[in-house]
Design a protein around this nucleic acid. Structure first.
Lengths: 248, 248
DNA sequence: TGGTTCTTTTGATCTGGGTCAAAGCCCGGT
DNA sequence: ACCGGGCTTTGACCCAGATCAAAAGAACCA
């Protein structure tokens, strides 16, 4: 399961093609890599579980290619996705021994891992990396809180619209084109994964996507290929009218 | 609005009576306080808004006494609580200029604040504080993710039971007694606030509390004073059977 | 090329929780 | 003691989304 990255795989830093969202700006991960022999790559197939809830978590790492999800599951099988990992996103919980949720590969993925002990020690030595990690974690916390509003208060249609605009906005690596406001991308998730993300059933997801298509908010080719002709209109459907928020 | 803390108020650190959950173990906030004239206290009345979404956020701080909530609101008035701040919890978003949500005092509160700029600069100088802050943020992230499972997948009854056990478990400062497994506390939230927490309506909250009372899961005196005769049973109702999680 | 399995769509029906409405309850003020 | 305004409870009704069921695509393999 631990293996060397094929030489033609995208490099993580420096002259890499991967967008780095957080840890790796200009480029802290490079520093990590200089330090060590503690870095290694792991790859997983689509559907494979990287980490079970409760597992020993002896590494931290970031996603190089592909998409993974964090999910929590109840004994009766109800599951809720609690995080979505795109390339450059971070996995791991410094300061906790076991994983609090499952990490599952949604597509084939490659992760760049670091053994945990050295990582944490090093964090003390290199405060700017700790700061950057803090930054990233705060971003994730903000995202989680937005998500909570979606889960707690939005209708099914608004939830779908929210998810689509999140993917369209955030996931630049998946975006294929963006001509005169049109946004085109392939959905990285099955209907079931979308349902797990949004706290819905897959049937409801399917119905609402059909409805958005019928109403011309989105265009679909096949099941996954999405075109958004008018981002404004989609965001309207999502219920978050672009409103900076004034002091009243 | 900025004022000196009355001299008989609980001290923040050292010989203080306040439980410190994160930043302040042995006791980093003391170091902050040594540095400066940048510390000051603010107090707010119950119901008062500390910070509006979109406001300039020129300070960070922790709650000394009382309870505050973080809430997000949609234009049509739907609101979702996204965080609950108990004494020692942290407010503020290093690295972001404006607040992403409202901070509202639920009870009268006193906050210990630090002007933001010096705080951030100092964080670079004192990496162990940055680490601790990271720790705390990661804890909050975990809590947010648990909360997402509650919001997305639990029934109204399970949601209420979850909230009650969270309060019972987490909030030691509110706990009045814990005799032979019995837990007694006063609810720090109105029915409406509970509804905002759980993504329900206040009517449903009321109904479910009545139902739990009828079924003997909880005892109520007045509207706020709760006794939990059997914590096991409550956690059962919450749907999270204490299950460490084994590798399968 | 046909079978097998997984994903997605669509339909029919049911139900948990929302909505609307009306009382109680409690506390504080006069 | 009375009144007024927040909370809270309870009831009646309704609907968005869950559940159950079936069939249509798509992908994969033999």
């Amino acid at each position: 399961m631990t293996l060397e990255l094929p030489t033609d795989a995208p490099r993580h830093c420096g002259d890499c093609q991967i967008r780095h969202r957080a840890v790796c700006s200009r480029c802290n991960v490079d520093e990590l890599m200089q330090l060590d022999q503690i870095k290694y790559y792991r790859s997983f197939e689509a559907g494979q579980t990287v980490l079970w809830s409760g597992d020993q978590m002896d590494f931290v790492g970031s996603v190089v290619t592909g998409i993974a999800t964090l999910t929590q599951t109840m004994e009766d099988g109800r599951t809720q996705m609690v995080g979505l990992l795109l390339p450059s996103d971070f996995v791991g919980r410094p300061g906790r021994e076991t994983a609090p949720y499952d990490v599952v590969a949604t597509t084939d993925i490659v992760m760049c891992c670091f053994r945990k002990k050295p990582f944490e020690a090093m964090m003390a030595d290199t405060p700017h990396i700790a700061q950057r990690l803090l930054q990233m974690t705060l971003d994730e916390l903000d995202a989680a809180r937005e998500w909570m509003l979606v889960l707690g208060r939005k209708t099914a249609r608004e939830k779908i619209a929210s998810l689509l605009s999140i993917i369209a906005r955030r996931d630049a690596t998946l975006r294929l084109a963006s001509l005169e406001g049109q946004i085109v991308f392939d959905l990285p998730l099955t209907r079931e994964a979308m349902a797990d993300y949004l706290g819905l059933t897959l049937e409801t997801v399917s119905r609402q996507i059909s409805a958005l298509k019928r109403d011309g908010i989105i265009l679909l080719e096949g099941k996954r290929h999405v075109t958004i002709p008018d981002m404004e209109r989609l965001m309207n459907e999502a219920g978050d009218d672009a409103d900076g928020g004034m002091v009243s």
